[in-house]
């Protein structure tokens, strides 16, 4: 179970220079990439491989609330669209996007949204900054959001207090 080793050795440069490459290695790395794609990276990991998870230390939440970090104020209800691949997004105006992460490319979807829920993210990461600028209620850092919330469910996003409720 070895991971990629990025050596200071300049593989592409060397390939261009010599017109030779270890093609088997390329095949192996393609397989590795597919395997990595199935793994969920931890926020914090130690040299023992131990995954240290953090918790939200909050008590003021409704009983069934799914906790996260409030990054853009406002409370909104709507249909949850659980979408992991941006290209498969088929949004109607007023949908709430539920996804793993939203880097800048996802912004093109934001204009159609009523709310945003992501598994990754903090107060100053990309999705949060744009959500505030568009006035879009958003809760980020919601662990397992794409599994806990089902596509099509009606949800309420509380971007002021930092939680999501399934209605």
């Amino acid at each position: 179970m070895k991971t990629f080793i990025i050596s200071p050795f300049e593989e592409l440069h060397e390939t261009v220079r010599t017109n030779t490459v270890d093609y088997e290695m390329i095949g192996k790395r393609k397989d590795d990439y597919k395997w990595y794609d199935k793994l969920t990276p931890p926020r914090v990991i130690t040299s023992d491989g131990e995954i240290i998870t953090g918790k939200y230390k909050r008590e003021d939440l409704p009983a069934e609330a799914i906790v996260g970090l409030a990054v853009s104020s406002g409370v909104i209800e709507g249909r949850a669209r659980v979408i992991l691949n941006m290209e498969e997004a088929d949004l109607e105006e007023g949908d709430i996007l539920v996804t793993a992460f939203t880097d800048p490319g996802w912004t093109t979807l934001f204009v159609s949204l009523k709310g945003l829920v992501t598994e990754v993210g903090g107060l100053m990461t990309h999705g949060a900054v744009i959500a505030r600028e568009y006035g879009l209620p958003a809760v980020v850092g919601v662990e397992n959001a794409t599994r806990l919330i089902k596509d099509g469910q009606r949800i309420r996003v509380n971007g002021t207090e930092g939680y999501v409720e399934i209605l």
Partner: peptide
């Protein structure tokens, strides 16, 4: 003993990256 923080979580991009 070492402690590592995920860069992807701060970059809002947790997919694997090719070499």
């Amino acid at each position: 003993n070492r402690v590592y923080l995920s860069v992807g979580h701060q970059q809002m991009m947790t997919d694997p990256i090719k070499p």
